[in-house]
Amino acid sequence: MTRKLTNQELKEKANLIRLDIIKMLVEAGSGHSAGPLGMADIFTAFYFNLLKHDPKNPQWEERDRLILSNGHITPVRYVAMAHAGYFPISELKTLRKLGSRLQGHPERKRLPGVETTSGPLGSGLAQASGYAYAARMDGQKFRVYCICSDGEHDSGNHWEAVLFAGKNKLSNLTAIVDRNNIQIDGYTEEVMPLEPLRAKYEAFNWHVLHIDGHNLEEIIDAVNHAKAVFEKPTVIIAHTIPGKGVDYMENDPKWHGAVPGVSDMPGEPSKEKQTQIALHELRTLKGKIKSEHE
């Protein structure tokens, strides 16, 4: 088990994680920027406060299970895992390279601590539900967390799982939705409107919480609160800003699947310049990423 970090320590950790996300993506030359940066605070909260886990023993039977459904944001998970001690930070620079354990989309059989393979969207919540159901059959005490994206809510497979988990009152399951309002073709409310999302989950017998996904206290409170809900699965709709921390990326769907220097838009600064600006902005935040209410 790792020591739980304090709030201030968590903020600083989240910022270091953002810096490493940018560095590893630039090194890889491809991948996704917006999702990982937007979810840096939530992954920091999980790996350094919320999860019952042991980085030196990733197969520990009593560990909480963190299932990542939207596999394309795996860089944030890899960085958080490296910082938590699952593997050396130096390994981050192998992302997406031949022979790496850090596949472009995460693979269970390659990297201990990755609970399931993902990338194709919409099937994580169903796997998490199956896992939670099986664990409950055996009276297991650990919790199952599923991190998923808003874009995935277009998919039938996701809603089939919402029905199943609601029916079966899987209170050992908590879903966290990265509600960043973007997907590839644009803003979610234009591509395929999801609102009112809360009412949809409530209608399917879920307990629903809304949080600011950049407020570490709110993240931690909400996840702990869910443990005390015994009749239903809980979904935490985390409002996040895609690309959070790097001004030119924030809230722009263009950065969903691009990394600094690889977008071929005319008049863009060079790769070095884009990387420099991103790293500079993150450094000057000095662990002070502000949520909307702080």
């Binding site: 491809s30 991948g31 997406r96 194709p120």
Partner: peptide, 8 residues
């Protein structure tokens, strides 16, 4: 599709 890996 290269760097995206086996899933893709």
């Amino acid at each position: 599709v290269g760097p995206d890996g086996a899933t893709h």
